[in-house]
Computed example of a mutant assay.
Amino acid sequence: MTTRDALQARLEQGIAALGLSLPADAVPRLLDYQALLERWNAAYNLTAVRDPAEMVTRHLLDSLAILPYVQGRTLADLGSGPGLPGLVLAIAAPGRQTLLVDSNGKKVRFLREAIRALKLDGVRALQARVEDVEGQFDCITARAFASLADMLGWGGHLLAPDGIWLAMKGKRPDDELPGIPAGFVVRSTHELVVPGLPAERHLLLLGRA
């Protein structure tokens, strides 16, 4: 079995365990993305995760775990890094306009190369601080990006009136809840089980009050 076959098996098993049904070309494109990330990571240190199998679990499956909660026609991924979860979601559920935002030039260069190489329609990468981004989005994702207070303080203006904010966290961030700015509320909290990942994962759905 080649390395790619092993990674594909791990990815497909994880997708099945998450109960997801993805487009036919999603798995090969996700693996192409992982290979590109692995290649760039050797030179640019985009992620601390080096092992390809760990990338499948910690990056691909961790991002895919929130897919059932993504909604709307437009999505902004704040502090996207190398495209997590925004680029993964764009491959798994194409068709929405997606903006990947990061202040790090190396990471945005990688994002632009990945968008080009993977021929991702409707996906853009922007090098900017979150507070300087303009527009409004139906769905906003943020993974290990900042505290809830900072996240919403910097980027709250980007959430459409009926939009949903998906905040990905490790442990349940009960200590951060009092810091949520006025005008925003927690709609629900979900414990996520990421196949192959023995760590706590929580997703908070926030909206305008």
Results as ranks from 00 to 15, higher is better:
R58I: 11
R201I: 00
G83A: 10
G163Q: 03
L89S: 00
L166H: 04
A182V: 11
W165Q: 04
L158S: 04
D102M: 06
E12R: 05
A9C: 10
G122C: 02
E12Q: 09
G170S: 11
L60S: 02
A117P: 11
A146E: 05
I115C: 04
V186Y: 09
I91K: 02
L7V: 05
D25A: 14
E191S: 13
D162E: 12
L204S: 04
A42S: 14
G79A: 07
P195S: 03
V27M: 05
L159E: 00
K106Q: 11
E176G: 00
I140A: 01
A9L: 10
L7Q: 08
L192M: 11
M168P: 03
W165G: 03
V194W: 02
V185Y: 12
E134W: 13
A35M: 00
G156R: 06
R4D: 11
L60W: 04
V27H: 01
G163R: 01
M1K: 08
G135N: 05
A48Q: 09
L177W: 05
V88M: 04
L75V: 14
D5N: 11
L118V: 08
R73V: 14
P178N: 06
V194H: 01
A6P: 11
G19W: 07
L203Y: 04
A26Y: 03
D175H: 14
D102I: 04
E200C: 09
Q136I: 15
V70T: 04
R50Y: 12
G95N: 09
E131D: 07
L22N: 03
G196K: 01
I91W: 03
D32I: 10
H202L: 11
T2C: 10
L31W: 05
A146T: 06
M1A: 13
A93P: 08
D32V: 10
G163V: 06
L158K: 02
R73W: 15
Y33T: 02
Y33K: 01
M1S: 13
M55G: 08
L177Q: 06
R4N: 09
A48P: 12
G83V: 10
E200F: 10
Q136R: 15
M168T: 02
L118S: 07
L197R: 01
T141K: 02
G79K: 00
P198V: 09
E200K: 07
G83E: 09
R109V: 11
D25G: 08
E54G: 01
L30E: 00
L11A: 00
S21A: 15
L30P: 00
P23I: 01
